[in-house]
Design a protein around this nucleic acid. Sequence first.
DNA 1: AATGAATGAGGGTTCATTCAT
DNA 2: CATGAATGAACCCTCATTCAT
Lengths: 202, 202, 202, 202
Amino acid sequence: MLVRAKTFTESGRRAQIVEAAIEVIAEVGYAKASFTRIAKHAGLSSTGMISYHFAGKDDLLAVCVAEIERVTGAFMQPRIDAAEGHVAQLRAYVEANVALVGEHPAAVRALIDIVKNRAARSAAVDGRLALFEEHFRAGQAAGVFRPFDARTAAIALTTGLDAVVVTAATDPPGPAELARIGRELADLYVRATAPEAEGGTR
Amino acid sequence: MLVRAKTFTESGRRAQIVEAAIEVIAEVGYAKASFTRIAKHAGLSSTGMISYHFAGKDDLLAVCVAEIERVTGAFMQPRIDAAEGHVAQLRAYVEANVALVGEHPAAVRALIDIVKNRAARSAAVDGRLALFEEHFRAGQAAGVFRPFDARTAAIALTTGLDAVVVTAATDPPGPAELARIGRELADLYVRATAPEAEGGTR
Amino acid sequence: MLVRAKTFTESGRRAQIVEAAIEVIAEVGYAKASFTRIAKHAGLSSTGMISYHFAGKDDLLAVCVAEIERVTGAFMQPRIDAAEGHVAQLRAYVEANVALVGEHPAAVRALIDIVKNRAARSAAVDGRLALFEEHFRAGQAAGVFRPFDARTAAIALTTGLDAVVVTAATDPPGPAELARIGRELADLYVRATAPEAEGGTR
Amino acid sequence: MLVRAKTFTESGRRAQIVEAAIEVIAEVGYAKASFTRIAKHAGLSSTGMISYHFAGKDDLLAVCVAEIERVTGAFMQPRIDAAEGHVAQLRAYVEANVALVGEHPAAVRALIDIVKNRAARSAAVDGRLALFEEHFRAGQAAGVFRPFDARTAAIALTTGLDAVVVTAATDPPGPAELARIGRELADLYVRATAPEAEGGTR
DNA sequence: AATGAATGAGGGTTCATTCAT
DNA sequence: CATGAATGAACCCTCATTCAT
C-alpha cells in the first residue's frame, strides 16, 4: 500500500482527543465529561484545541461513537459471522459483547453511557435495535424463535445486555468469568425466545 | 391510628417542590433539571427556596425517589402480593410495572432517569436488584426456576424491564396495549427462567 | 400617589446595570461592551449577576434603548410639541436633539451606537425613520415642503443628524455652541426641504 | 509607463485575501468578519495565512479600505471632474456615489461598515470630511454656497449620503432607480447649501 | 419560614495571533 | 513562501449554593 488513506479519526491530535474523551467518559461519566476535563486528560493546554479539531461537543461525541464501533465491530463481527443459524448468532452476539469487556472495558462503558445520554438517538442504538428486531422476525419466520413481540423483546434484551456489560466493565473480571457470564446471559436469551415445548409454560 | 404522622415529604412547600422536580425531570430529563427550572415549574420565585428545604441536589433527588417509590409501590405491591408462587410473582411484578406507565408516566420516567444518572447508586436500584436476585435464588431452591446465575439474570431483566417501561412511558399507549406489552415481557422472562422441559432446552 | 408603580428599569440593581451598560457603551463602543466590562463598571463581582437580572445581552440592550428613549423623550418631546407647523417642528426636533447632547451625552452616544450595530433593527430607529417620512409627506400635502422623495430624505437627514449629535457628544461643547450647531443643522434641513422660491434652484 | 509597478495590494495571495475580506464584511458585517470566516471564504485552510501576509487585523482592514477607495475612486473621480463649479461638483459627487452602488455594492457596503466601526478613524473618512468642508468653504468664498457652518454641514451630508448608499446597497435597485435616488439626494443637498433666494426661508 | 440577590466556578465556543515545520 | 496546530484570553451563559434580611 503506497498511499495510506487518512481516516477521519487520525491526524494525531484528533485521535488523541477522541481517545482522551472516551477514557474520560468511561471514568467520570457522560454528564461530567467536560471539554476542560478531556483537554486536561489529553495533555492539552486549552479547550480551544478541541473546538479547533471538532465542530462542537456533538461532533466529538459522534466521532467517539464511530471510533468505538469501529474497534468493537472488529472484535465482535468475526465471532458473529462464525455462527450459523439465528439462535447461534444470537448467542454469539451476546457472548462476544460480554467478552468484549475484557478487551476494551473503557470503550464499552463509554459507548453505553454516550448512547444512554444523547438527546439525539444515534444511528448506533437505533441500528442495533432494528437489527435485533429484524433478526427476531427472521428467526420467527424460520421457526427457530417463538412468535413473541419482536420489538418489545429487542428493547428488553439489548438493554439488559448493556447493563450486564456495564456492570462487568466497571470492574472487569478475568476472561473465564466473562465467558461464564456471557454464556449465562445467552442461555437466558435463547430460552426466552425458544419455540414452545410440548407442554407450554403457563 | 387516629392522627396521621406528617411524613417527611409533606409540609406543603416540600411536597410542592418534590412534585415539580419529578415533573421537570420527566419532561426535560435529569441532565437539564436545574434548580432554576424546577423553581420556575413550581411557581417559586427563586431557587433559594429549594436549597432552604433540601440539603442539596442529592437530597432533593433522594426524596423524589422515595416519593415515587411510595406512589408506585402503592400501585404495584397489591398486584404482586395477589400472586402466588415465585413464577406468578415474577410475572405479576413485570406486568404491574408496565401497567404502572398508564397511571404515573411522569413518575416512572423520572425515576428511571434519576437512577440511571446518579453517581451514588440509590438504595432503590440496589434494593430491587437484590430483591430480584433473592427471588430467583428462592425460586431456584423451590425448583420453579432453573439454576441460572441469579445476579446476571437480575441485572439483565430489571434493566430490560426499565427500558421497556421508559419506551412505553415516552408516549403512553392505552391500557390494553400496555397489558399486552406487559404480558409479552413477562412471557419472555418466565421462559428465560423456567426449568428445563424434558427434552433439553427446547 | 400611594403606591408607586415599579417600572421595569427599577429594582436597584437592574437600574444600576442599565446605567453602567449605557456608560460603557458610550465609552468603549458597542462592540467592546462585554458583560465583563459592564459588570466591572457597575461594581459587580461577576457577569453572572447581569445574566441573573436580564434574559440575555439582547434583553439588556433593549432595556438600555428603552431607558434612553424614556430619558431623551422627556427632554425632546415638550420642545417639539411647543412648535407649530411642520417646518417649525422639523426645526424643533433637530435643535432639541442637538441640545440633548448637553444633558445626556453618554445616553445619546450609546443609543446611536446600539442602533447602528444591532442586527435586529429596533422599533426605535425604524420608528423615527417612519416618523420623519410621514412628517415630510404630511408637510408636502400641506404645501410647506416641496415634493421631494420623502424616504430618501428621511434616511439622509436622520442619519446626518445622528452624526452631528455623535460628533458633538464625543467632546460636548457648551450650551451656546450646541444651540448654534442645532440652528445650523436645522437651517440646512429646512432649506433642503423648503418649497421652490420663485427663481428655482438649478 | 511601460512596466506597471506592483502595488502593495497585489502579489496574488494578498489580493485574494483582501477581496475575500471585502466580500465577507459586506455579507456578514464588520463585527462578524473574523479571520476564520475570511480564510474560509478565500479557500484558505488556515488563518495563519492571513497573519502571515498582514501585520494584523487593522492592517488588513486598512488595505481593504485602500483597495475599495482605489476601485471606487476610479468610478467616481471622472464623473466629479467632468462637473464644473462647486455646486455641480457637489451634485456630481452625490450622484456618482449613489450610482456606484450599481457597480460595486459589496465594496460600498464594506467600506462604510469598516469606517463606521473602526476605533481609529481612517484617513479615508477624515479625508472626505475635510474635502467636503474645504469644498463648502471654497464655494462660500465664490458666493455659490450660502454662509453655513461648513463643518456641521460636512458631517451631516457625508453621513446622510452614506446612509442612503448603504440602504440602496442592501438590496440594489436598477440603474434608473439609483439615478433617481442620486438626483433626489443631490437636490436636497444643493438646496440645503444654496444662497438665499430673495425672500429668505424663515 | 421565606425571600431573592449575590457568588464564583464552570460550561462550550470564538477569537487574533504565534511558531515550528 | 506556506502550513496548520497550538495558544490563551475573552465571550455569554448556567449552575448549585449562600446569606442578609
